[in-house]
Design a protein around this nucleic acid. Structure first.
Lengths: 260, 260
DNA sequence: CGACTAGTTGAGGCCAGTCAATGTTGGTGG
DNA sequence: CCACCAACATTGACTGGCCTCAACTAGTCG
């Protein structure tokens, strides 16, 4: 279970920053969409340079989020979406008996907070799995700008729809795949997202624990651990703690077969 | 498994209607939002009468969909959302090996097709579980009108967000509840939706088969059947084929406990 | 160095899946 | 209207995949 963490944004809003928390001075980072490595994956994808500047102007803030800190918590008022510049996040829902269920992992170029669109409050938490960096997009302004900039509007819709579809894919995964197949889907999905971002898709370091993987895939951490060992014994991959080498991606793919 | 069915809308678009298919003449039904029983649950909720009339004008068509017919199929081009006036639908994804996974059940006042927003094609099928009736909302026009009518815009966002949240809730259900708990959640959710629509929440007729329930809840039809029998033996409900009487809703709720 | 967290591995049990037989329901055509 | 058939549903016996509980290792941090 995750220990108590502080919400950087909440603490900026309502309380003096704790002594240990380094708040990056605003001038230190004033990056622009045009120079951002995530440009083509993120909201500005396909926008003209004028439109990108408009988008820049509504980005209210660039925030560094330290590992284990949250972007927002369940119940926090919904004001903004967050575009990830750097790092990795998990989003989760808390059950009433205190367990957490991981709903997704999010990396550079992705938008989090979308599930709260149309509500006044966030339903779950979003927590950094490593030191990360996000752009804060005040939703009211973003929404207004999207009315004026059709390609931004389309991008926004695409991100929203991706969110819905991800839910559907996870239902398929959780509802009809066996544990080994789920893990294979998870690894291949990660590999694909790393490739898209210019990283190696054959070798990467997991940002999440066995327990977090298990939660996301609807199983227990021991099962994840056993499956890693088993897939390694089969020669499909190599596991060294959180470092994963995919030795045979197509073999992993065959595990899933036509079932997905 | 569902047999071959015809897509009413597709056949209207691309092929002459089959002889047996009764196409309701347009003038037979020209209902308006203002007089629709689903008004307060659906997109026009909270709109002024002027705004409702504008919404009426973009509703391109009112369509009767017979049991087993589809509103759209996987791969169909995305042009419209559909507001359910009457009846029940299931939405599903087909796996590559031909199995179907039910993603949701939809009834009066709900909007289907949202997952294709931002894509050009639908990813899954939506099929009527009983003779039903929908309003066709051409998305381009709806989107345009939403820019001009803030409350419509908000409603649209709320429906979209509900879609995302439903996915999350299902992940929670599939990832962390046992079969009996899942069925309890399902029944209580149905009961709640019937209550919202003015029907009895204690006694209702399921529109879906055991297999469809099982698919939705990530289990096998035999398990669903056994659980119905078991819950009946416990005195929590009474099952007679597809007719369900909830004898002890709070008992069902206690089954789930704090786990959701 | 000890306390703690993360991960691995084993033994055993149980929940839900599989396979199979039987009962029930509802639609269709004679 | 009834008989028939196919689809739907129930129930039982058995199996197996994953969970539970537990012991142990490795790495980390004060």
């Amino acid at each position: 279970m995750i220990g108590p963490t502080t919400s950087i944004l909440a603490s900026q809003r309502c309380a003096p920053a704790p002594a240990l928390q380094r708040v990056i001075p605003f001038r230190e980072l004033k990056p622009h969409c045009a120079s951002c490595g995530m440009r083509d994956l993120c909201l500005p994808a396909g926008l003209g340079s004028d439109e990108m500047r408009q988008l820049d102007q509504i980005v209210s803030n660039h925030v560094h989020v330290k590992r284990r800190d949250s972007l927002f918590r369940s119940g926090d008022p919904f004001t903004s979406l967050y575009a990830i510049r750097l790092g990795t996040f998990k989003s989760l829902l808390l059950t009433q008996d205190g367990r957490e269920q991981v709903m997704g992992y999010h990396m550079g170029g992705e938008i989090v907070g979308i599930d709260a669109i149309g509500n006044h409050h966030h339903a779950g938490d979003v927590i950094a799995l490593e030191d990360s960096e996000v752009c804060v997009l005040p939703f009211a302004k973003l929404d207004q700008l999207a009315r004026e900039v059709p390609s931004l509007h389309n991008n926004l819709l695409r991100f929203i729809s991706r969110n819905v579809c991800h839910g559907h894919e996870m239902m398929l995964l959780l509802g009809s795949l066996r544990a080994e197949e789920r893990l294979a889907v998870f690894l291949l999905d990660l590999a694909d997202r790393y490739r898209t971002r210019g990283y190696s898709s054959h070798e990467f370091v997991l940002r999440m624990s066995r327990e977090e993987i298990a939660s996301y895939l609807g199983m227990k951490l021991e099962t994840v651990s056993r499956l890693f060992s088993h897939l390694q014994a089969e020669g499909l991959l190599q596991v060294q703690g959180r470092t994963i080498k995919l030795l045979d991606s197509s073999g992993l793919g065959r595990l899933i077969g036509q079932r997905c």
